[in-house]
Simulated scan of single mutants.
Amino acid sequence: MGLAFLPLGLAFGVLVTQSGLPWWWAGLSAALVFGGSFEFLLIGLVTAAAPLAAIALSAFMVNVRHVFYALSFPLHRVNGRLGKAYSTYTLCDEAYALTTGGQARSWPGRRILWLQLLLHLYWAGSSTAGALLGSLVPDGVTGLDFALTALFTVLALDAVRNLRGDLPTPALALLSALAARFLFPGQMLLAAFVLFTAGLLARHLATRRRPSRA
């Protein structure tokens, strides 16, 4: 997973320097913001001198999915206020996917923290390297932007395998994404999460009521 961060960070660092921002901006953003996809959007907002209110709203819309992640992220296994604060701060899609799988249910809090720290370092280090070495990357190199798509595809496949034959869940996720795409194309990600969460809650309530009726 950390190796998958390398091409993404390199691409981000190259984009920072190509946008006219100083090289240190890439490492600083990667270390402090640690927002992944939002950081790519942030470059355009900063270079366009967007108002802080617009930047804050964009950050909320892109990262609101973390609210849903918190419902099942194993933060209770992390010890100490400082550890919980850092674990919350560095919660990302990849950390969530790895720590909520079947094999990770026995992981102690220390292993979760080390995982998040290493992902954080991979992202900040590769972003800084991309900004410093961006001029050495040939213009003909393509496919760096597809690394993110490939990474999420692998995560989705692993999540489906961990469901152990529970076909209704991925089917519900697919229907939620399709409904959001056609009904709310401008806010597809947020709408898909809301629909998927509502569907899971409805299924949970329906399943819980069946034994009592019987």
Rank of each mutant, 00 (worst) to 15 (best):
L82T: 06
L82C: 01
K84Q: 13
K84S: 07
K84R: 15
A85C: 12
A85N: 04
A85P: 11
A85H: 03
Y86L: 14
Y86E: 03
S87W: 05
T88S: 09
T88A: 13
Y89W: 05
Y89C: 01
Y89L: 05
Y89H: 08
T90V: 13
T90W: 02
T90K: 00
T90N: 05
L91H: 07
L91F: 06
C92A: 15
C92F: 07
E94V: 13
A95Y: 09
A95M: 06
A95N: 11
Y96T: 09
A97M: 10
A97C: 06
L98F: 03
L98N: 04
L98W: 05
T99R: 07
T99F: 01
T99Q: 13
T99V: 02
T100F: 15
T100D: 04
G101I: 12
G101N: 14
G102W: 09
G102I: 09
G102L: 09
Q103E: 15
Q103H: 11
Q103M: 11
A104R: 08
A104H: 03
S106H: 15
S106R: 15
S106T: 15
W107C: 00
W107F: 04
W107Y: 04
P108E: 14
P108I: 12
G109P: 04
G109K: 09
G109Y: 14
R110A: 11
R111E: 14
R111Q: 15
I112H: 11
I112K: 02
L113H: 06
L113V: 10
L113G: 00
L113I: 13
L113N: 06
W114V: 13
W114F: 12
W114L: 12
L115Y: 11
Q116K: 08
L117I: 12
L117G: 10
L118N: 11
L118V: 15
L119T: 09
L119K: 05
L119H: 04
L119I: 12
H120F: 10
H120D: 01
H120Q: 08
L121E: 01
L121P: 03
L121R: 09
L121A: 14
Y122F: 10
Y122L: 01
W123G: 08
A124R: 01
A124D: 00
G125T: 09
G125I: 10
S126L: 07
S126Y: 13
S126V: 12
S126M: 05
S127Q: 02
S127D: 01
T128I: 05
A129S: 03
G130A: 01
G130F: 03
G130N: 00
